[in-house]
Design a protein around this nucleic acid. Sequence first.
RNA 1: GGUCUCAUAGUUCAACGGAUAGAAUAGAAGUUUCCUAAACUUUAGAUCCAGGUUCGAUUCCUGGUGAGACCA
Length: 597
Amino acid sequence: MNVQIEIQKSISKSLSELFGHEVAFENLALQPTRREFEGTYTFVTFPFLKVSKKSPEATGQLIGEYLQSNSDQVSDFNVVKGFLNLTISDGTWLDTLKDVCKTVNFGFAPSNGKSVMVEYSSPNTNKPLHLGHLRNNFLGYSVAQIYEANGYDVTKVQIINDRGIHICKSMVAWQKFGGGETPGSSGLKGDKLAGKYYVKFDQEYKKEIAALIETGMPKEEAEKQAPLFLEAQEMLRKWEAHDKEVYDLWTTMNGWVYEGFDQTYEKMGVTFDKLYYESKTYLLGKEAVKIGLEKGVFYQKEDGSVWIDLTEDGLDHKLLLRSDGTAVYMTQDIGTAIERFKEFPGQEKLVYTVGNEQDYHFKVLFLILKKLGYQWADGCYHLSYGMVDLPSGKMKSREGTVVDADDLMDEMVQTAGDHTKELGKIDGFSESQARELYDTLGLGALKYFLLKVDPKKRMLFDPQESIEFQGNTGPFIQYTHARISAILRRAEDLKVDFQSESCLDNVPLETVEKDLIYLISEYPERIKSAAVEYSPSVIAQYCFDLAKEYNRFYAELSIFNESDPDKVCLRVKLSQQVARTIRSGMALLGIDVPEKM
RNA sequence: GGUCUCAUAGUUCAACGGAUAGAAUAGAAGUUUCCUAAACUUUAGAUCCAGGUUCGAUUCCUGGUGAGACCA
């Protein structure tokens, strides 16, 4: 039973019987009553004054009276202007709590037989992952988890950008300056090694340009004539011609990078079900372009290049195939999407977790897919997220102001460890237990910090603040869970029978407890709405609310401890639910919760 | 130049078109016989500007200003 829906239905009935006005109950908005007022749910009557033909107060009074006598849930009400505040009966709260207790997999829906695909990460193989990738991965992974909790069958994918001129740059630099260095010989992670030579290329390339300008060559020409640049271009040509030597080098270096990435993903706690490689998909899509041409969706210019005219949709003309017949990003994205739906038919959604600098690209991509006649194009969604800024400004790889993902995670864990030791919280922990705790805390802090902000908004990452363990942070919520676990252990020691149904009966409820039951029972609804809006931030906020509410409750409990055991019994029962709810909420976000700390 | 996004306490973030705009931090003042003080309580502090839409606007529309992204 869902209290909110029951009340919505009752209101719908009241509108029909009192005023002869028919409204579907889903369309009747109920909101939580503000703390200053008496009540749990508030119904705004302003929009219905036209049908009631009465003042706001009289309208609220009528509906309130109707609900009080006709609804099992509403025990009382009050009217303030156009706001009808409804008080829910204690019995309803107790029933709700019992209901929640009985639900085994609370917060998780059974399989609905539908499937979705979520893409995230999708890095280049010429440099290591950075802070932006962390936001991307955590978002994508959370969304996948949220879908799973909603009963979907989820396929997690990424497309690895493993070809192109930028990869060749690393390769050229390694060949010329590497001296045969390998991850094994240098002790560097594979992705770090590739990144090192990508930077090296840029440095040497700049030197060459400077030298050429010195000889009187204009800057633009120097950039195109620098020997290193020509070599990289030549390497790309050889790669495309499947030159054995180049291909071997490419395979080797990418292999190193993948080993490095795997370590990073493992530390982050994200996984993938299927990997796509651009080297295998970059030729896809040409066929689709041909079909589009035949259908007249696309048009060809005299030079042979293929375009689509999107001016009617408020966009511009977009290139789909160059005059020399080579593909552009758009071409391969069209091909890859088609391929994915061939391979995994019947997906309800395909979510692309990609930064908002690609907003335009995806708008065009989805429009093209639709114009090509693919029904599933409507299910394509760009989960667009804003850039992560640093207090010092924007991250720029060329200026070396990039925050490396591995370094950052290590730093977070390190700080968590230092802080925990300082507080003397780990007495009696083994070395490995302590390390696990630091990992949980450090990464939990990082994940929560990156997920609590609305994805589409640009956010500021302050390393100092992210490491804070107070306020609206992951560790605060984790800590709350650990405290609840401690209470439950204590209750078991005292042999409190919190499993018995009877301990819930005839106990007067405190306001605090109703708030808690309200929050807990609302939980699945929040997940449902989050899955529609793709908002891990909704769940993050929810977990924090719950933890905060619980801490308030905890403060009362301390004062209250000595009174009669029935009440303690109910509170323990609540603790159990709070713990369970926090745990599942954090699980959706991909954040671990320790039992002890 | 064209298109898109964002703008809220000192700071970082909230708010299906609803009540006196919430939190968290930093500031000020308190609370430890207690299942963990990594906590709690009290206090002060904000909607970029100008119009419009309506019972009612942080939210929707128009025009500015500022920040950012994309496209040539």
